[in-house]
Computed example of a mutant assay.
Amino acid sequence: MRSGPRTVVVDDSRFMRGLITDILESGGVEVVAEAADGAEALSVVADVDPDVVTMDVEMPRMNGIEAVERLMREHPTPTLMLSAYTEDGAEETFAALDAGAVDFFAKPGGEVSMGVSRMEEQLVETVRSVAEADISGGRTSGAAVATATHGGTATETRPVGGVEPNTTVVIGSSTGGPDAVERVLSALPGGEDLRVLVVQHMPEAFTGRFADRLDAACELDVAEATDGARIGRGEVLVARGGEHMKVTRYRDGRLRVQLIDEDRGQNVRPSVNVTMESAAATIDDPLVGVILTGMGDDGATGVRAISEAGGRIIAQDEATSVVYGMPKRAAATGRVDTVLPLDDVAGGIVGGAS
């Protein structure tokens, strides 16, 4: 069993601290210290210099949001928020992500859609992933030259032309994705002939709030997906947590989706693969697949399907990915056409038509 990462567990409940510690240590994660609130967490982190912190949101003296803000200023450390599985918890969690937290996880013992053992495995996996996150804040922007890796051949590419009529974009992301997706969508012009599907690994209680945030941040009209929802030019659907989003129909620039409440052989729900594969099978107009930061390999099968259907594939580069898991697995398929820094992805979508 792998050792590490060195972890500090922060929660005002002694029972919850013990439960989280037991889960992590049984999964081979080393818990080096615990703290009962944000103020104590700052002192403990400064003393033990951990690889990762798990942080409760609601705590006395100093809550998790303020603690993350202080931590990122005083002792930057990758932080995973453990949030209540509620709409209120979603609001607070997004505030913590804005403050600098890397990712979040529904608290053990909450109402979750996966079994207890699977939830415990996922928590351990997420802590390990967050511990490896790059929180240096370095960003690459401007008219950077991208590298085309399709078929394993590196070539210099530059955006040319404009977006093709009736272009559909499918964006997949996980760890670090909420901020990455927002930055991509907010950079897309509202006047282009685009319709966008977003698949972000996120629990059901959070995706509606995520869609609202995206809608406020960009020129496109963004909504959480519902079963049978239709979108056209200038519209975006965000996959609902706990259900796959499948494209079932496409005609005259409008597409329709179905929500599926079953695994479909995937280890996450919603799955990027399900949406990308169904889009590739259904849409006969221009199609672009985008893989952003995230752990795991979801999307690798989907990019193959889009590429085989004649679509383009864009992957976020390692330097700007919080976790270079999903983009790396996508690139390993040999189907990625363009690798771009996060702040150039929107330009690649709009200007990459040939």
Score class of each variant (00 low, 15 high):
S3C: 02
S3G: 14
G4L: 14
P5E: 12
P5V: 06
P5C: 08
P5G: 09
T7E: 01
V8E: 06
V8P: 08
V8S: 10
V9Y: 07
V9N: 07
V10K: 02
V10L: 08
V10M: 07
V10N: 09
D11Y: 08
D11C: 03
S13N: 10
S13P: 05
R14H: 11
M16D: 02
R17N: 10
G18A: 01
L19T: 11
I20R: 01
I20W: 01
T21E: 14
I23A: 04
I23Q: 01
L24I: 01
E25L: 01
E25P: 00
E25K: 02
E25G: 01
E25C: 04
E25D: 07
S26H: 02
G27I: 05
G28D: 04
V29K: 02
E30G: 01
E30Y: 00
E30A: 14
V31P: 03
V31E: 01
V31K: 02
V31D: 04
E34D: 01
E34N: 10
E34M: 14
E34I: 13
E34T: 15
A35G: 09
A35L: 03
D37Y: 11
D37K: 05
G38A: 07
A39R: 15
A39M: 11
E40R: 15
E40L: 03
A41M: 13
A41V: 02
S43K: 15
A46E: 14
V48P: 02
D51I: 00
D51M: 02
D51E: 15
V52S: 06
V52Q: 07
V52L: 09
V53K: 07
V53T: 06
T54D: 06
M55S: 10
D56M: 04
D56S: 05
V57M: 13
V57D: 11
E58G: 00
E58Y: 03
E58V: 13
E58Q: 15
M59W: 05
M59Y: 09
M59G: 03
M59L: 04
P60S: 07
P60K: 08
P60D: 05
P60I: 05
R61G: 01
M62S: 03
G64K: 05
G64A: 12
I65H: 05
I65A: 06
E66G: 03
E66L: 11
A67L: 03
A67V: 05
A67W: 06
V68I: 15
E69Y: 02
E69H: 12
R70A: 15
L71F: 02
L71W: 06
L71A: 10
M72P: 10
E74H: 09
E74N: 00
E74C: 00
H75C: 15
H75Y: 13
T77H: 08
T77P: 04
P78M: 06
T79M: 03
L80F: 05
M81S: 07
M81H: 06
L82P: 04
L82N: 05
L82D: 01
S83I: 08
A84W: 00
Y85N: 13
T86P: 05
E87N: 03
E87Y: 10
E87I: 13
D88L: 13
G89L: 08
A90D: 02
E91Y: 11
E91S: 10
E92A: 15
E92N: 14
E92C: 06
T93K: 09
T93P: 10
F94M: 08
A95F: 04
A95D: 15
